[in-house]
Simulated assay, not measured.
Amino acid sequence: MSLLMAFSIVLVVLAIGDIVSTRTKAWVPSVFVAALLFLFGFWTFFPQDIVAIAGFQKPIIYLSMYLLITHMGTLLTVKELISQWKTITIALMGIVGICALTLTVGRALFGWETVVVATPPLTGGIVAAIIMSEAATSLGIEKLAVLAIITYVMQGFVGYPLTALMLKKEGKRLLKGFRSGELKAAEETTASIPSTTKKKLVPVTPEKYATTYVILAKLGITAWAAVGFANLIKPVVNISPFVMCLFFGVIAQELGFVEQRPLNLSSSFGFLITGLMAFVFAGLAKATPAMLATIALPLAGIIVLGVSGMAILSMFVGKKLGYTKEMSFAVALTALYGFPPNYILTEEASKALAETDEENKFLMDEMLPKMLVGGFTTVTIVSVIIAGIFVNLL
């Protein structure tokens, strides 16, 4: 398969996902449709490395992740991060809910080793899945090594449609308040604060010099500094470079060194997120029919138990903290996929519900920070910690 053929096929799959999502007004998320199509493709005629053949290989994907996460940091202010302590608490309680049911009911149904291997991937990202898979392999438990990876690959099939449903319900509630005027005044007040009262330490780049190269150079320098700092403090405290990119994006935007939404300003966002999404779906190449058949029951059982525990505890804690059950569950569900699907699902729900640009911006401003913070809390930070603990339980 040639470079352009592979690229075209990958983009057609992603495009079909967008079309279906638009036609169904986000009731069927694009990421869910694309995941199904990729799975079918890998089971039939797709080369296992079609995404790599299409040009989306690890160096460009890691570059995309560093730049995109730093870009996402520019969307959040320090004040916003501090104000999101409730979101972080709900996300953490969702993880506790997963562990509570899998380690009790799950243990009784599927055995200790099975739930210990499958739970960390369910709480977050690919790093946790790899840690548990390698641990199972070292113990000679090949079936469970496969289960760790497949749990990570398949959990999105549950997370995508559930999140879309929760965000649409929450979006409808927010729009009702916005259109009636109940929430509009508060949004106008908070939106006006940065532009009228905050002064940046670094002067704004004159418009004539704010070219694509200049904007990307500043973003690249920020991400480079973030990764360098993460490596520098590693002997003392081990913080993921991706988490550090998020924080440095916040700081650089606060100082005025990097603009808000730099990848949008440089017209680079769309291509970078396309490559990252394609790379996420490349993981489905491992989910062969034979593998799925051998682990189908524990896979389904652990995912159902984990998501049930997540729903119960996140909704309960969210209610105590003043969040709706829909927003609470959506925040907790970010553990099943993280970034970038949390961004895309929020954007799709907002576009589907909003009738004007003003309404779309309002919904994104209300829901996106919570979804981003939830995703970084669960996938990037907590899942790796959980995996580090669970490895010692095997």
Rank of each mutant, 00 (worst) to 15 (best):
G301R: 01
A290F: 05
T334I: 04
A300D: 03
A349D: 05
S308K: 01
Y323A: 13
T356A: 07
M291Y: 10
E347L: 07
V317N: 11
T324G: 14
P340R: 04
L336D: 10
F339S: 06
M327S: 15
T324H: 13
T294D: 08
D357T: 11
F339W: 03
K351V: 07
S350C: 12
E348Q: 15
N342K: 00
P298S: 09
L333S: 15
E326Y: 15
E358S: 14
L336I: 03
A352T: 10
I312T: 08
L353A: 13
S328A: 15
L336H: 13
G338C: 06
L292T: 03
L345V: 05
V307Q: 05
L284P: 03
V304C: 12
T356Y: 09
L284R: 03
G301I: 01
S314F: 08
G338Y: 13
G322N: 12
A354K: 06
P341A: 11
Y337R: 01
L284K: 05
V304K: 01
L321K: 10
K286M: 09
V307L: 01
G309L: 02
T334A: 10
S314A: 13
F339V: 08
A330D: 11
V304A: 15
T288N: 02
L345E: 10
I312D: 03
G318R: 05
D357E: 15
L292Y: 08
L313K: 03
V331N: 08
M327A: 15
S350M: 01
L353V: 13
V331W: 07
G318F: 09
L321A: 09
T356M: 07
I344E: 07
K286N: 13
S314W: 05
E347F: 09
E358Q: 14
L297K: 06
A287P: 02
P340H: 07
I303H: 04
L336R: 05
S350T: 12
A285I: 01
F316W: 12
T324K: 09
L353E: 13
A335T: 11
E358K: 12
E347Y: 08
V317Y: 12
I303K: 01
M327H: 12
E348V: 03
